[in-house]
Design a binder for these strands. Structure first.
Length: 524
RNA sequence: GGCCCCGUAGCUCAAUUGGCAGAGCAGUUGACUCUUAAUCAAUUGGUUGGAGGUUCGAGUCCUCCCGGGGUCACCA
């Protein structure tokens, strides 16, 4: 009994649609109509499953030496059809679920003519989801398979996934024939990317393990995980342009947060000794291989430690996370062997810049002098940059050279409005950034807890950035009010979670560790 | 935002100095009851990202636009 194309399906296909199907999609829609005509539900609500693909294979292999026991392993498996080989009156399929793949051997004699017609005529085809009941067996050529007695369609795929064929080599490695590599389509249709590229799925599993390990470490260290507002009446804690939004009913402009800093420190006033938050920050700036408009940040604040204590925590935290995710404290990133074992290299910003650029910025204590020195050595220096900004741009020359985990410490005061002054040096503060793989990973300081000094810094920043209103650091009066109640001495720390994910998964672009990276509108 | 590169079938890619838009995979039809990148035979499929221009003739050259990648600027 064969199911053949009939005329009446035309009406089904030509009904009003919001999209333009390709020829292959038209073909699949016709098959969908024919299934409906046969009384077969293409999207049934109920499913049965006794084994994952991996469990079915394991259950068989465990008892394979005993023929009677092996024949009695009955399973119902579900998954997406990934390979079809119809060989006359027997068909071999591979179906895939979250655990992996298992082969189905579907024989006309075992499933009956009606079901086999669906297989032979490919009314059920590549990329559809199916449920199969049968007994486990090993084929003559050696593959553990399900000898199928019942086959059901679970979900019809109207659009075909990109075609990638796989071959398992003798040594167990997998060769792929065909690929889905167009970056734009992969990012825009991440679901298709994940469906056909298992290594992409693995990247995001690693990312999840990484975030889980970050939490575990901080929880075990006695930190309290908290959540603070994303919609904020005043943004702050970093120098970045914010996204602005509006609450209609309250008629109130709000900003999407650019950091968690100021809210987390309020909590230390409230007598939590140690808090952290993992969440999304939003910065209205350019996108690049290491910048996305929204990105995941982790920050912690701990009372009764200074930035030396924070460096110690950083080394232990990162070594732990890398160990948890990869099983080792050494990773390979873009061909570089990177070792996270403490202690990491520590050098002052002044030393680092002097060593890389030959510029001793302490010999140039004002913007004009430093700018001249930079230009003399061939570095760009903007006319409108402050002295602190110029120093920071020199750090940009150092950054790519910092492959091994490195702390760079003691930053200019005027680009660090929330850090405590370095004793004996009013021009510098107790702040460090740490770098790995040539990227800035995070930022930390001995937190400023003197409300009058903090107020002065806010006012100073307002003056320094007056010309660039976009980046002005607004004065947060409520934050100052909190600080006036008394804030314990504390160390604070923040890290770009996406960038750590890049390191641990050896990805060169932040877009490859974001499931749905930001893209422009698809159509004008 | 500046500069450079790219955009051809569902996917991956060809197309000579500007000269008939092609291949593999998938799809369709047929053969095959232990295959596995199955194989064999036949076959469908295109507004070459979009709009203009040059030319007898444009995938190819020019201009603009859209999208992507890279890089610089920006990003405490």
């Amino acid at each position: 009994m064969r199911v053949r194309t009939t005329d009446h399906v035309e009406g089904e296909v030509s009904r009003e649609m919001s999209w333009e199907p390709t020829n292959v999609e038209r073909d699949r829609l016709e098959k969908l109509a024919r299934l409906t005509e046969l009384g077969i539900e293409a999207y049934p609500p109920r499913v049965e499953r006794t084994h994952t693909a991996a469990q079915a294979i394991a259950a068989f292999e465990a008892v394979e030496d005993d023929p009677e026991a092996a024949e009695s392993i009955e399973v119902t498996v579900c998954g997406r059809v990934r390979r079809i080989n119809i060989k006359g009156k027997v068909a071999f399929w591979h179906i895939e679920d979250g655990s992996g793949r298992v082969q189905l051997m579907i024989r006309l004699d075992n499933v009956g003519e009606a079901t086999y017609a669906l297989v032979q005529d490919k009314l059920i085809e590549l990329d559809d989801f199916v449920q199969a009941r049968g007994v486990m067996m090993r084929t003559r050529s050696g593959e553990v398979s399900v000898q199928v007695y019942e086959l059901r369609l679970l979900a019809k795929a109207v659009s075909p996934l990109p075609v990638i064929k796989e071959k398992v080599e003798e040594d167990g490695t997998i060769s792929r024939f065909g690929e889905f590599s167009d970056k734009e389509t992969r990012y825009r249709q991440r679901y298709a990317d994940l469906a056909v590229n298992p290594d992409v799925r693995e990247v995001f599993r690693k990312r999840a393990r990484m975030i889980s390990a970050l939490r575990r470490f901080l929880d075990d260290e006695g930190f309290l995980e908290v959540e603070t507002p994303i919609l904020q009446p005043i943004y702050g804690g970093a120098a970045a342009r914010p996204f602005i939004t509006h609450h209609n009913q309250l008629d109130q402009d709000l900003y999407l947060r650019i950091s968690f800093e100021l809210y987390l420190k309020r909590l230390l006033v409230g007598m939590y000794d140690a808090v952290y938050e993992i969440g999304r920050d939003f910065r209205n700036e350019g996108v690049s291989f290491k910048h996305n408009p929204e990105f995941t940040q982790i920050e912690f604040y701990k009372a009764y430690i200074d930035y030396h204590g924070v460096m110690d925590l950083t080394e232990r935290l990162l070594a732990f996370v890398v160990q948890q995710v990869t099983g080792d404290t050494v990773i390979t990133y873009q061909g570089h062997r990177i070792d996270f074992r403490p202690p990491w290299k520590r050098l002052t910003l002044h030393e680092a810049i002097l060593a890389t650029t030959g510029i001793d910025y302490k010999q140039h204590p004002d913007a004009a002098s430093l700018r001249a020195a930079m230009r003399q050595r061939g570095y760009q220096a903007r006319d409108d940059a402050t002295w602190g900004k110029l120093v920071d741009s020199l750090l940009g020359e150092v950054e790519p050279t910092l492959i091994q985990p490195t702390f760079i410490l003691d930053y200019p005061r005027d680009i660090s409005p929330f850090a405590k002054m370095l004793p004996g040096d009013p021009t510098h503060v107790e702040r460090f950034e740490f770098f790995i793989g040539g990227m800035e990973m995070g930022n930390a300081f001995t937190e400023l807890n003197d409300p009058q000094d903090q107020e002065a810094r806010f006012l100073e920043m307002g003056r320094l950035y007056a010309e660039d209103q976009d980046e002005a650091t607004p004065l947060d009066e409520d934050y100052l009010r909190a600080m006036r109640y008394g804030m314990p001495p504390c160390g604070g720390w923040g890290m770009g979670v996406d960038r750590l994910a890049m390191l641990l998964t050896d990805q060169r672009s932040i877009r490859d560790v974001l499931l749905f990276p930001h893209m422009r509108d698809e159509e004008a």
